[in-house]
Protein backbone atom coordinates (compact mmCIF):
# COMPACT_ATOMS: atom_id res chain seq x y z
CA UNK A 1 0.00 0.00 0.00
CA UNK A 2 1.36 3.42 -0.92
CA UNK A 3 1.71 5.87 2.00
CA UNK A 4 -1.04 8.44 2.39
CA UNK A 5 -2.03 11.23 4.72
CA UNK A 6 -5.28 10.91 6.62
CA UNK A 7 -7.50 13.79 7.63
CA UNK A 8 -10.85 13.95 9.38
CA UNK A 9 -12.29 17.42 8.73
CA UNK A 10 -14.77 19.21 10.96
CA UNK A 11 -17.69 19.23 8.54
CA UNK A 12 -18.74 18.19 5.01
CA UNK A 13 -17.83 21.59 3.53
CA UNK A 14 -14.27 21.31 4.78
CA UNK A 15 -14.10 17.71 3.55
CA UNK A 16 -15.16 18.86 0.08
CA UNK A 17 -12.60 21.68 0.03
CA UNK A 18 -9.88 19.29 1.17
CA UNK A 19 -10.56 16.66 -1.49
CA UNK A 20 -11.17 19.24 -4.22
CA UNK A 21 -7.76 20.76 -3.48
CA UNK A 22 -5.81 17.54 -4.14
CA UNK A 23 -6.39 15.60 -7.36
CA UNK A 24 -5.24 12.36 -5.70
CA UNK A 25 -7.47 12.72 -2.61
CA UNK A 26 -10.38 10.39 -1.90
CA UNK A 27 -13.28 10.36 0.54
CA UNK A 28 -13.42 7.43 2.95
CA UNK A 29 -16.89 6.38 4.12
CA UNK A 30 -17.45 2.91 5.60
CA UNK A 31 -14.29 1.74 3.86
CA UNK A 32 -15.60 -1.70 2.91
CA UNK A 33 -14.55 -1.28 -0.72
CA UNK A 34 -11.92 1.48 -0.59
CA UNK A 35 -9.73 -0.11 2.09
CA UNK A 36 -9.66 -3.33 0.07
CA UNK A 37 -8.68 -1.35 -3.02
CA UNK A 38 -5.88 0.35 -1.09
CA UNK A 39 -4.53 -3.09 -0.19
CA UNK A 40 -4.88 -4.42 -3.72
CA UNK A 41 -3.28 -1.35 -5.28
CA UNK A 42 -6.38 -0.60 -7.36
CA UNK A 43 -6.15 2.98 -6.07
CA UNK A 44 -3.19 4.83 -4.57
CA UNK A 45 -4.33 8.19 -3.17
CA UNK A 46 -1.89 10.50 -1.40
CA UNK A 47 -4.65 11.81 0.86
CA UNK A 48 -7.59 9.97 2.44
CA UNK A 49 -10.34 12.14 3.93
CA UNK A 50 -12.61 10.41 6.44
CA UNK A 51 -16.23 11.54 6.17
CA UNK A 52 -18.20 8.80 7.95
CA UNK A 53 -18.46 10.82 11.15
CA UNK A 54 -19.45 14.08 9.41
CA UNK A 55 -22.56 12.96 7.59
CA UNK A 56 -26.08 12.69 8.93
CA UNK A 57 -27.00 9.29 10.37
CA UNK A 58 -30.72 10.19 10.47
CA UNK A 59 -33.63 9.22 8.25
CA UNK A 60 -35.76 12.34 8.33
CA UNK A 61 -39.34 12.69 7.07
CA UNK A 62 -39.91 16.02 5.31
CA UNK A 63 -43.26 17.82 5.15
CA UNK A 64 -43.63 16.68 1.55
CA UNK A 65 -43.54 13.06 2.72
CA UNK A 66 -40.06 12.57 1.31
CA UNK A 67 -37.70 10.45 3.37
CA UNK A 68 -34.31 12.14 3.51
CA UNK A 69 -31.67 9.51 4.25
CA UNK A 70 -28.43 10.95 5.62
CA UNK A 71 -25.39 9.73 3.73
CA UNK A 72 -23.98 8.39 7.00
CA UNK A 73 -26.92 6.06 7.67
CA UNK A 74 -25.60 2.50 7.62
CA UNK A 75 -27.04 -0.06 5.24
CA UNK A 76 -28.28 -2.12 8.19
CA UNK A 77 -29.99 0.81 9.94
CA UNK A 78 -31.68 1.82 6.70
CA UNK A 79 -32.89 -1.72 5.97
CA UNK A 80 -34.40 -1.91 9.47
CA UNK A 81 -36.10 1.51 9.41
CA UNK A 82 -39.85 0.85 9.92
CA UNK A 83 -40.82 3.56 7.41
CA UNK A 84 -38.59 2.03 4.76
CA UNK A 85 -39.87 -1.48 5.47
CA UNK A 86 -43.48 -0.35 5.20
CA UNK A 87 -43.34 2.15 2.35
CA UNK A 88 -40.37 0.91 0.31
CA UNK A 89 -39.98 -2.83 0.99
CA UNK A 90 -37.95 -3.19 -2.21
CA UNK A 91 -35.23 -1.00 -0.70
CA UNK A 92 -35.09 -2.86 2.61
CA UNK A 93 -34.96 -6.19 0.77
CA UNK A 94 -32.26 -4.98 -1.63
CA UNK A 95 -30.08 -3.81 1.26
CA UNK A 96 -30.54 -7.07 3.16
CA UNK A 97 -29.68 -9.13 0.10
CA UNK A 98 -26.26 -7.51 -0.12
CA UNK A 99 -22.99 -8.32 1.67
CA UNK A 100 -23.00 -9.61 5.28
CA UNK A 101 -24.18 -8.35 8.66
CA UNK A 102 -20.75 -6.93 9.46
CA UNK A 103 -20.40 -5.18 6.10
CA UNK A 104 -23.93 -3.72 6.24
CA UNK A 105 -23.06 -2.22 9.63
CA UNK A 106 -20.06 -0.48 8.08
CA UNK A 107 -21.41 0.46 4.65
CA UNK A 108 -23.10 3.84 4.30
CA UNK A 109 -25.96 5.19 2.20
CA UNK A 110 -23.60 7.63 0.50
CA UNK A 111 -20.84 5.13 -0.10
CA UNK A 112 -22.86 2.16 -1.31
CA UNK A 113 -23.75 3.63 -4.74
CA UNK A 114 -20.10 4.61 -5.24
CA UNK A 115 -18.64 1.14 -4.70
CA UNK A 116 -16.67 -0.10 -7.70
CA UNK A 117 -17.32 -3.10 -9.90
CA UNK A 118 -16.28 -6.53 -8.63
CA UNK A 119 -14.92 -7.44 -12.11
CA UNK A 120 -11.99 -9.73 -11.26
CA UNK A 121 -9.78 -8.06 -13.85
CA UNK A 122 -10.48 -4.61 -12.41
CA UNK A 123 -9.36 -5.86 -9.00
CA UNK A 124 -6.29 -7.71 -10.32
CA UNK A 125 -3.62 -5.08 -10.97
CA UNK A 126 -1.51 -7.56 -12.99
CA UNK A 127 -4.08 -7.57 -15.83
CA UNK A 128 -5.00 -4.83 -18.32
CA UNK A 129 -8.20 -2.95 -17.46
CA UNK A 130 -9.51 0.21 -19.08
CA UNK A 131 -11.45 1.15 -15.96
CA UNK A 132 -8.40 0.92 -13.70
CA UNK A 133 -5.81 2.10 -16.26
CA UNK A 134 -7.44 3.85 -19.23
CA UNK A 135 -6.15 2.63 -22.57
CA UNK A 136 -4.61 -0.59 -21.22
CA UNK A 137 -7.31 -2.84 -22.70
CA UNK A 138 -10.12 -5.04 -21.40
CA UNK A 139 -9.12 -8.45 -20.08
CA UNK A 140 -12.72 -9.56 -19.69
CA UNK A 141 -13.38 -9.63 -23.44
CA UNK A 142 -12.65 -13.21 -24.41
CA UNK A 143 -11.91 -13.99 -20.76
CA UNK A 144 -14.25 -14.93 -17.94
CA UNK A 145 -17.53 -13.18 -18.64
CA UNK A 146 -20.06 -15.00 -16.47
CA UNK A 147 -20.56 -11.97 -14.22
CA UNK A 148 -20.43 -9.29 -16.89
CA UNK A 149 -22.87 -7.01 -18.67
CA UNK A 150 -25.45 -7.87 -21.31
CA UNK A 151 -26.80 -4.33 -21.66
CA UNK A 152 -25.10 -1.00 -22.41
CA UNK A 153 -21.51 -2.29 -22.47
CA UNK A 154 -18.78 -0.91 -24.75
CA UNK A 155 -15.66 -2.22 -26.46
CA UNK A 156 -13.73 -0.69 -23.59
CA UNK A 157 -15.61 -2.15 -20.63
CA UNK A 158 -18.18 -4.85 -19.92
CA UNK A 159 -18.22 -4.52 -16.11
CA UNK A 160 -21.43 -4.42 -14.08
CA UNK A 161 -22.36 -2.23 -11.13
CA UNK A 162 -22.42 -4.38 -7.98
CA UNK A 163 -24.81 -2.49 -5.67
CA UNK A 164 -28.21 -3.95 -4.79
CA UNK A 165 -29.34 -0.79 -3.00
CA UNK A 166 -28.73 1.22 -6.15
CA UNK A 167 -31.10 -0.98 -8.16
CA UNK A 168 -33.92 -0.28 -5.72
CA UNK A 169 -33.10 3.44 -5.55
CA UNK A 170 -33.21 3.62 -9.35
CA UNK A 171 -36.65 1.99 -9.49
CA UNK A 172 -37.90 4.36 -6.75
CA UNK A 173 -36.87 7.59 -8.53
CA UNK A 174 -34.66 8.57 -5.60
CA UNK A 175 -32.67 11.81 -5.71
CA UNK A 176 -29.05 12.23 -4.70
CA UNK A 177 -28.07 15.36 -2.79
CA UNK A 178 -24.51 16.36 -3.57
CA UNK A 179 -22.18 18.94 -2.02
CA UNK A 180 -19.34 20.08 -4.25
CA UNK A 181 -16.74 22.84 -4.52
CA UNK A 182 -19.36 24.94 -6.35
CA UNK A 183 -22.18 24.30 -3.89
CA UNK A 184 -25.10 21.91 -3.66
CA UNK A 185 -26.92 20.12 -6.42
CA UNK A 186 -29.39 17.29 -6.81
CA UNK A 187 -28.90 14.40 -9.23
CA UNK A 188 -31.72 11.98 -10.11
CA UNK A 189 -30.54 8.57 -8.89
CA UNK A 190 -31.15 7.12 -12.34
CA UNK A 191 -28.69 9.66 -13.78
CA UNK A 192 -25.95 9.16 -11.17
CA UNK A 193 -24.21 6.25 -12.85
CA UNK A 194 -22.98 6.31 -16.43
CA UNK A 195 -22.48 3.77 -19.18
CA UNK A 196 -18.81 2.95 -19.86
CA UNK A 197 -18.53 4.24 -23.44
CA UNK A 198 -14.98 5.40 -24.11
CA UNK A 199 -14.36 6.53 -20.50
CA UNK A 200 -15.04 3.48 -18.29
CA UNK A 201 -12.79 4.93 -15.60
CA UNK A 202 -15.70 7.19 -14.66
CA UNK A 203 -18.47 5.28 -12.87
CA UNK A 204 -20.69 8.26 -12.08
CA UNK A 205 -21.39 11.84 -13.15
CA UNK A 206 -19.93 13.20 -9.90
CA UNK A 207 -16.89 15.43 -10.26
CA UNK A 208 -13.76 15.27 -8.12
CA UNK A 209 -14.53 16.63 -4.68
CA UNK A 210 -18.28 16.14 -4.93
CA UNK A 211 -19.70 14.41 -1.85
CA UNK A 212 -23.08 12.69 -1.46
CA UNK A 213 -24.70 14.16 1.66
CA UNK A 214 -28.14 12.52 1.50
CA UNK A 215 -30.48 10.50 -0.68
CA UNK A 216 -34.11 11.59 -0.90
CA UNK A 217 -36.92 9.09 -1.39
CA UNK A 218 -40.00 10.99 -2.57
CA UNK A 219 -43.34 9.57 -1.46
CA UNK A 220 -44.34 6.84 -3.92
CA UNK A 221 -47.55 4.99 -3.04
CA UNK A 222 -46.93 2.26 -5.62
CA UNK A 223 -43.76 1.28 -3.73
CA UNK A 224 -45.77 -0.20 -0.87
CA UNK A 225 -46.23 -3.20 -3.10
CA UNK A 226 -42.64 -3.73 -4.16
CA UNK A 227 -39.97 -6.40 -3.93
CA UNK A 228 -36.34 -7.19 -4.72
CA UNK A 229 -35.34 -10.56 -6.05
CA UNK A 230 -31.69 -11.51 -6.42
CA UNK A 231 -30.27 -14.57 -8.15
CA UNK A 232 -26.71 -15.63 -7.32
CA UNK A 233 -24.41 -18.62 -7.13
CA UNK A 234 -25.05 -19.17 -3.41
CA UNK A 235 -27.93 -18.28 -1.12
CA UNK A 236 -26.22 -15.48 0.79
CA UNK A 237 -23.19 -13.19 0.77
CA UNK A 238 -22.63 -13.08 -3.00
CA UNK A 239 -23.12 -10.55 -5.76
CA UNK A 240 -26.03 -10.81 -8.17
CA UNK A 241 -25.94 -12.68 -11.44
CA UNK A 242 -29.18 -10.86 -12.12
CA UNK A 243 -31.60 -9.03 -9.86
CA UNK A 244 -34.96 -7.33 -10.20
CA UNK A 245 -36.44 -4.42 -8.26
CA UNK A 246 -40.14 -4.09 -8.96
CA UNK A 247 -43.17 -2.17 -7.78
CA UNK A 248 -46.65 -2.62 -9.26
CA UNK A 249 -50.13 -1.22 -8.93
CA UNK A 250 -52.90 -3.64 -9.89
CA UNK A 251 -56.60 -2.85 -10.33
CA UNK A 252 -59.19 -5.44 -11.42
CA UNK A 253 -56.58 -7.77 -12.83
CA UNK A 254 -54.83 -5.05 -14.80
CA UNK A 255 -51.41 -3.56 -14.07
CA UNK A 256 -52.03 0.17 -13.94
CA UNK A 257 -48.50 1.24 -13.08
CA UNK A 258 -45.06 -0.32 -12.64
CA UNK A 259 -41.49 0.53 -11.66
CA UNK A 260 -38.80 -1.92 -12.74
CA UNK A 261 -35.00 -1.92 -12.50
CA UNK A 262 -32.41 -4.64 -13.12
CA UNK A 263 -29.11 -5.36 -11.38
CA UNK A 264 -26.15 -7.46 -12.47
CA UNK A 265 -26.65 -6.75 -16.16
CA UNK A 266 -25.06 -3.37 -16.87
CA UNK A 267 -22.48 -0.75 -15.86
CA UNK A 268 -25.40 1.06 -14.21
CA UNK A 269 -28.40 -0.03 -12.17
CA UNK A 270 -30.66 -0.52 -15.19
CA UNK A 271 -34.04 1.21 -15.17
CA UNK A 272 -36.29 -0.95 -17.36
CA UNK A 273 -38.61 1.66 -18.86
CA UNK A 274 -39.47 -0.43 -21.89
CA UNK A 275 -40.60 -3.22 -19.59
CA UNK A 276 -42.65 -0.73 -17.59
CA UNK A 277 -44.33 0.49 -20.80
CA UNK A 278 -45.30 -3.07 -21.74
CA UNK A 279 -46.68 -3.76 -18.27
CA UNK A 280 -48.77 -0.59 -17.95
CA UNK A 281 -52.29 -1.54 -19.03
CA UNK A 282 -51.43 -5.24 -19.30
CA UNK A 283 -53.52 -7.96 -17.77
CA UNK A 284 -51.89 -9.93 -15.03
CA UNK A 285 -50.24 -12.87 -16.78
CA UNK A 286 -46.89 -14.64 -17.09
CA UNK A 287 -47.02 -14.11 -20.83
CA UNK A 288 -47.09 -10.35 -20.36
CA UNK A 289 -44.31 -10.45 -17.76
CA UNK A 290 -42.11 -12.32 -20.21
CA UNK A 291 -43.04 -9.88 -22.98
CA UNK A 292 -41.99 -7.02 -20.70
CA UNK A 293 -38.61 -8.64 -20.11
CA UNK A 294 -38.16 -9.34 -23.81
CA UNK A 295 -38.90 -5.71 -24.68
CA UNK A 296 -36.18 -4.56 -22.32
CA UNK A 297 -33.74 -7.23 -23.48
CA UNK A 298 -34.22 -6.61 -27.20
CA UNK A 299 -30.86 -4.84 -27.33
CA UNK A 300 -29.06 -7.30 -25.04
CA UNK A 301 -25.62 -8.38 -26.26
CA UNK A 302 -24.42 -11.44 -24.39
CA UNK A 303 -20.67 -12.09 -24.29
CA UNK A 304 -18.71 -15.16 -25.30
CA UNK A 305 -16.19 -16.27 -22.74
CA UNK A 306 -13.80 -18.93 -21.53
CA UNK A 307 -16.45 -19.92 -19.02
CA UNK A 308 -19.21 -20.31 -21.59
CA UNK A 309 -20.16 -16.65 -21.59
CA UNK A 310 -23.09 -14.86 -20.03
CA UNK A 311 -25.92 -15.60 -22.45
CA UNK A 312 -27.68 -17.43 -19.63
CA UNK A 313 -28.51 -14.06 -18.12
CA UNK A 314 -31.19 -13.39 -20.75
CA UNK A 315 -33.53 -16.30 -19.90
CA UNK A 316 -32.57 -16.00 -16.23
CA UNK A 317 -33.58 -12.35 -16.11
CA UNK A 318 -36.80 -13.08 -18.02
CA UNK A 319 -37.78 -15.73 -15.49
CA UNK A 320 -36.67 -13.62 -12.52
CA UNK A 321 -38.80 -10.67 -13.62
CA UNK A 322 -41.80 -12.97 -14.17
CA UNK A 323 -41.35 -14.61 -10.76
CA UNK A 324 -41.00 -11.25 -9.01
CA UNK A 325 -44.15 -9.86 -10.62
CA UNK A 326 -46.11 -13.08 -10.02
CA UNK A 327 -45.28 -12.95 -6.29
CA UNK A 328 -46.08 -9.25 -6.03
CA UNK A 329 -49.45 -9.61 -7.73
CA UNK A 330 -50.34 -12.64 -5.61
CA UNK A 331 -49.27 -10.84 -2.44
CA UNK A 332 -51.55 -7.94 -3.27
CA UNK A 333 -54.49 -10.27 -3.88
CA UNK A 334 -54.26 -11.77 -0.38
Amino acid sequence: MRPFDYRSPADPAEAVRTVAGDPTAVFLGGGTNLVDHLKLGVVAPRLVVGVAGLLSTEVEELDSGTLRIGAGVSNSELAADPRVRERFPVLSQALLSGASGQLRNMATTGGNPLQRTRCVYFQDVTTPCNKRRPGSGCSALGGWTRNHAILGASEQCVAVHPSDMAVAMTALDAEVRVLGPDGERTVPFGALHRLPGDTPERDTVLGHGELITAIDLPALPIARRSAYRKVRDRASYAFALVSVAAAVEVRDGVITDARIAFGGVAHVPWRARRAEDVLRGSEVSDRRYRAAADAELADARPLDGLDGGNGFKIPLLRRTLAATLRDLVREGAR
Binding site: Y6, S8, T32, D36, G50, A52, Q102, L103, N105
Partner: peptide
Amino acid sequence: GACTVLSGGKRVLSCLTLAVT
Protein backbone atom coordinates in the same frame (compact mmCIF):
# COMPACT_ATOMS: atom_id res chain seq x y z
CA GLY B 1 -15.34 -12.71 9.03
CA ALA B 2 -12.47 -14.12 11.14
CA CYS B 3 -11.44 -10.56 12.10
CA THR B 4 -14.89 -9.55 13.40
CA VAL B 5 -14.89 -7.20 16.40
CA LEU B 6 -17.49 -4.94 17.96
CA SER B 7 -16.89 -1.22 17.43
CA GLY B 8 -19.30 0.97 19.34
CA GLY B 9 -21.23 -2.23 20.10
CA LYS B 10 -21.72 -3.18 16.46
CA ARG B 11 -20.04 -6.05 14.65
CA VAL B 12 -17.61 -4.87 11.98
CA LEU B 13 -14.67 -6.26 10.04
CA SER B 14 -11.40 -5.03 11.55
CA CYS B 15 -9.45 -5.93 8.38
CA LEU B 16 -11.38 -3.33 6.37
CA THR B 17 -11.24 -0.66 9.09
CA LEU B 18 -8.35 1.78 9.13
CA ALA B 19 -7.07 2.19 12.68
CA VAL B 20 -7.00 6.00 12.29
CA THR B 21 -10.79 6.00 11.95
